[in-house]
Design a protein around this nucleic acid. Sequence first.
DNA 1: GGTAAGTGCGTGATACTATAACAAGCTTCC
DNA 2: GGAAGCTTGTTATAGTATCACGCACTTACC
Lengths: 166, 166
Amino acid sequence: MTRSVIQDFVTSDHDHDSCIDAALARAEAVCRARGERLTPQRRQVLELVWRSHRPVKAYDLLERLSSGGRRAAPPTVYRALEFLREAGLVHRLESLNAFIGCPRPDMRHSAQFLICTRCGAVAEMDDASLTAKIDANARRLGFKVDDEKIEVNGTCRECRERDAAS
Amino acid sequence: MTRSVIQDFVTSDHDHDSCIDAALARAEAVCRARGERLTPQRRQVLELVWRSHRPVKAYDLLERLSSGGRRAAPPTVYRALEFLREAGLVHRLESLNAFIGCPRPDMRHSAQFLICTRCGAVAEMDDASLTAKIDANARRLGFKVDDEKIEVNGTCRECRERDAAS
DNA sequence: GGTAAGTGCGTGATACTATAACAAGCTTCC
DNA sequence: GGAAGCTTGTTATAGTATCACGCACTTACC
């Protein structure tokens, strides 16, 4: 069994500042490699996305962007998010209309998310054998896969233990 | 390899009238079994969904509902869709904000869709071994799965052949 | 230096998707 | 008949996303 966890559910002892720094450093590298510019605006949006390991809504980002005096308009944040998504730096969670930072933008992978419907936490996985299986199923119908998205709803360990205790 | 195709891409020689009739008959049966009412309103929405094998938008349904004189309001169609979804009669395609009829409402299954980004056609699959694999991966993180959704973008056979010919 | 092309961003308007809240009608069951 | 619960109508509003236009800045080329 391959190791498939890209980002586990985050525990409280986790050093978040360095985690954000690392994400931004990875982003710089990815953009440089792609010959694209991580402008201050894009960088700020990515940093806001990484402030939590939770899915973030576009309009929440917008509010946080606006806090410094003048207010930002929706296209500002959507443009930045689109750029980041194309670069593989953030994923969009379709079932939540929300965005989350990708911890492995360097590595092409399909998106597989476990979403806790109790607490909203998200874990990202990449099981290549799943992808392979989907590909094989599709091929039998003559379908050529570009990309796939898997979103799994359920309950994370912490929430289940909390529920059991009560 | 188990047979996993629930609804293949639809070809032009397909008898669509009887296909709608069959869907409505299945719906009656499902609702009866659940002790719920397939009211005329819900039935009409389901029929509109089944008029094509394509994903349908809520507001398109709304327009078609309204055509007969008085205009329907959004909650009308959203309520019907929610009812149908809970009964397993329609699926929501998260990445498209659209709905599509489920050909196997009687059988509980996870939703796995192939979506052709060229022509918009959709096929539905249910590979139980995929579901099992996702379950196993989740379990290793202590995550309990309620339901999962797989949406695969790509190109269907027909569109690829058309492209190749040109 | 001048300028044309490309990119990024500000801004206002608007489109699209979905739900809240409350009232009224219909069914069922006693 | 009347209470309870489900179904629908209606108005308003919340939430999500894009269009279209113009300006500023950079880069490349002459």
